[in-house]
Write a protein that binds this DNA or RNA. Sequence first.
DNA 1: ATTTGAATTGCAAACGATTGAAATAAATAA
DNA 2: TTATTTATTTCAATCGTTTGCAATTCAAAT
Lengths: 336, 336
Amino acid sequence: MKRQITIKDIAIKLGLSTSTVSRALKDHPDISPKTRTAVKELAGLLGYRPNRIALNLRNNSTRTIGLIIPEIEHYFFSAIINGIEEIAYKNDYSVMVFQSNESYKREVINTQAVLTNRVDGVLVSFSKETSDFSHFQKLIDNEIPVVFFDRTTEELPADQVVADDYQGAFMAVNHLIEKGCRRIAHFAAPQNLQIGKSRLSGYHDALLKHNIHFRHDLVHLADTYDSAKKTAHDILRRPEAPDGFFAVNDMSAIAIIKAARELGKRVPEDIKVVGFENSKSAAISEPELTTVDQFGFDLGREACLMLLKRLKSTDETDFKPVKKVIKTKLVVRSST
Amino acid sequence: MKRQITIKDIAIKLGLSTSTVSRALKDHPDISPKTRTAVKELAGLLGYRPNRIALNLRNNSTRTIGLIIPEIEHYFFSAIINGIEEIAYKNDYSVMVFQSNESYKREVINTQAVLTNRVDGVLVSFSKETSDFSHFQKLIDNEIPVVFFDRTTEELPADQVVADDYQGAFMAVNHLIEKGCRRIAHFAAPQNLQIGKSRLSGYHDALLKHNIHFRHDLVHLADTYDSAKKTAHDILRRPEAPDGFFAVNDMSAIAIIKAARELGKRVPEDIKVVGFENSKSAAISEPELTTVDQFGFDLGREACLMLLKRLKSTDETDFKPVKKVIKTKLVVRSST
DNA sequence: ATTTGAATTGCAAACGATTGAAATAAATAA
DNA sequence: TTATTTATTTCAATCGTTTGCAATTCAAAT
């Protein structure tokens, strides 16, 4: 690579010391106006830009945020990245992205990678497989601020940003009931994830409110398009098929609609379906999908803001983890 | 932040010099087996990990790739990032992501950011607004290898990876004609983008092959959901409405289907629609969308591999830009 | 006991920028 | 003229690691 212009080059050309040049560039009062302008002029002429790596070493900081995320391809996560990048950009931070691909093993390697890269802080949404958190604890032990978002845990002393999953689920199921559904199935996420638990619990309580009996055989683990489609096919063929579905994400909800159509059932006449996410796909599905907006962009923003706040505050004494909940919103469309 | 364990800590604890420790850690033959094991043992015990920043400074390399991309939220781009990250991960590189949000101004700032961050190489898909490329030329002037993907230009001496847009468009339109369409409209991307030109030209030549007259009034600039929906509404109400549509991406295609349905036209009976991308949405739209698969994941992989190859080869003499074309594939579904 | 050579280990400079302290130059006061 | 400020500038160390070269140790050969 071409050698970059350094402070030394300027110093030599001007017959000065590097210290003087350094100070001149940052308007130190000790430097005479004459040399200051001379230095700045030459710096501009040569296209000098400070070597960030050298600064990183000296300041022991990289102005870089590590992002560990399951899968970029999911609309929700890409919306979150969007929000994160927005805030990072405004605050002159850069974002390094590491995908876990929903693999615990890879996620552990990712945590090592953020350590190696000496990022200033880390944003994490962990994989479905993750139930042991010691790799994140290691980050915290290294005093690297960590903020969890969406997929979070209470087991670690770290900040969290989550959508109001419980409320969203409650609203969704409540809506289904008000639309006349009585046998409502729930396609759930794994229960090691807090979001899985919260949404199930919102589902449960909404039934309770309307005195509808909670039945375990109406709850299925199905949080991907394929698994949801398969499960929906099975259930819808049963004699007492559900008349309503609450899916843990939009892709599962759309799979349910697809399965219903394939079996000659009409949506929303025969069965009603509500998703969770408010992805682009929800808006274009046929019929358009009623769903709970998770505001991924805002969630990303908030997570990043929270991390930046930690990076600014240097007093590490009496650390109190903060949990921020982003309100969700029911978006009613024609699938209900 | 907590002070990290350094080579110096180990040296002092063992009464050695930093040089010896450094060499011991990398199995330098000069070091006696005894000290080598002692050093390694202590290093493991203390959880020593080399300070990447210091190495960056010494080696003038960051093992980091800069990625400048319009919008992460588009399925196609997130698929590409996925491919890029996969290759980067396997080769122990990290990826810094910068979004231009389709803004030329922001893109220019992004190029400065990758310079500041001293990335080893840059992957770029530029914004719709970009027609001046001097900010990328600046990267090249700094001898930072640049690989363009998807949105590329011939104006710069840089590697490129593109989908076979011409062939994809040709296949798509040919397919429409074979299915009986005669008045085929094309919803195009801006013509400052090579992909816009290539796809239009594929459209043009497929018509030509079947002796169908090319008509300018059937070509519209509409490459977003909203613009496509609006345009489709207008066109479909005309007396001689098209019987087939070839859209430059899936979102536009889906918008056309939506508009058709709203006007009481049936797809594929009254009009047939083909998209470009093969996004998740294409598979779930109703009817399912016939589209051209761009293989974004592979495209990302190839772009990253190409960049890594440049990073390895140090001989910068007689640089010959390479252009790699990823074959596209027509995925026929029920919209045609 | 001295030389030779091999095997180990340490010194010091380098990467680029910053910064406290010291040094020099210029200006003012005694 | 000399002492004393004050204004500028330079020195040198630092951040953590690597590496050419010099230095040391130690055993074998003479």
